[in-house]
Amino acid sequence: MHRIMLREVIIDAPSADIDAVTSFWAAALAATPHPVPGEPYVALRGAASLPQVATQDIGDDPVPRFHLDIETDDLEAEIARLEGLGATVRARFGTYAVLTDPVGLLFCLLPPESEEFALRSATVGG
C-alpha cells in the first residue's frame, strides 16, 4: 500500500512559443507567472484551479502538449501498479520517472513535495 496525488498540470510548449503560452494561460486562469529558478518551468501562482498549474519550455520539440505530475511515496510500487494498468516507462531520473498512458499521453511520477500530500493523497495498491 502506498499513497498518490495528482499535483500539477504542466503545459508544455516549444521555446519559440513559451512566452505566449505562459501569458495566455496565466490570463486564462487569473494567475501570476513565477519562473522557477534554474528550471524550464513557470509556476502559475494563484491559478483558478484545484491542482497547481505550470508551463514548461520543451526546447526544440515542436509538439505542444499537456502532461500531469503525480506524487507518490513509493515510486517503484506506483510504477508497477501503473504498468499493470497499461502505462509504459519512458525514462527514469533518480527520484522521478516519465511514463505514458495506454494511448501515449505523457505523465510524471515524483516524490511527495506538496504540503497537501498528507491531507489529500489516496492510498492505492494492495
Rank of each mutant, 00 (worst) to 15 (best):
M1E: 13
M1P: 10
H2P: 05
R3G: 03
I4Q: 06
I4R: 11
M5E: 06
R7Y: 09
D12S: 10
A13W: 11
A16H: 13
D17W: 01
D19T: 13
D19M: 03
A20F: 05
A20M: 10
V21Q: 07
T22D: 05
S23Y: 00
S23L: 07
F24K: 02
F24A: 09
W25G: 05
W25I: 03
A26H: 07
A27L: 11
L29A: 00
A30V: 02
A31K: 02
T32S: 14
T32H: 11
P35R: 06
P35L: 05
P40T: 05
P40D: 02
Y41W: 10
Y41I: 01
A43S: 12
L44K: 01
R45M: 13
R45D: 15
G46F: 01
G46D: 02
A48F: 04
S49Y: 04
S49R: 03
L50Y: 09
L50D: 14
V53R: 04
V53S: 04
A54H: 00
T55I: 08
T55N: 07
T55P: 05
T55D: 07
D57I: 08
D57Y: 07
D57L: 09
G59P: 10
G59L: 13
G59V: 14
D60V: 15
D61G: 01
D61H: 12
D61W: 06
P62K: 09
P62E: 10
R65H: 12
L68T: 03
L68P: 01
I70T: 14
I70E: 03
E71V: 08
T72M: 02
T72L: 02
D73V: 04
D73T: 09
L75I: 07
L75S: 02
E78I: 00
I79Y: 05
A80M: 01
R81N: 11
E83T: 14
G84L: 05
G84T: 09
G86C: 07
G86V: 08
T88K: 15
V89N: 06
V89H: 06
R90G: 00
R90H: 08
R90A: 08
A91T: 02
F93I: 00
Y96D: 13
L99F: 02
L99H: 00
T100I: 14
T100P: 07
P102M: 14
P102R: 14
V103S: 15
V103R: 14
L105H: 15
L105E: 12
L106P: 03
F107E: 06
C108G: 02
C108M: 03
P112T: 08
E113R: 15
E113L: 11
S114R: 11
E115V: 10
E115C: 00
E116D: 15
E116M: 14
F117D: 02
A118G: 12
L119T: 15
L119D: 15
R120V: 12
R120G: 06
R120S: 13
S121C: 08
A122Y: 05
A122C: 04
A122F: 05
G125E: 13
G125S: 12
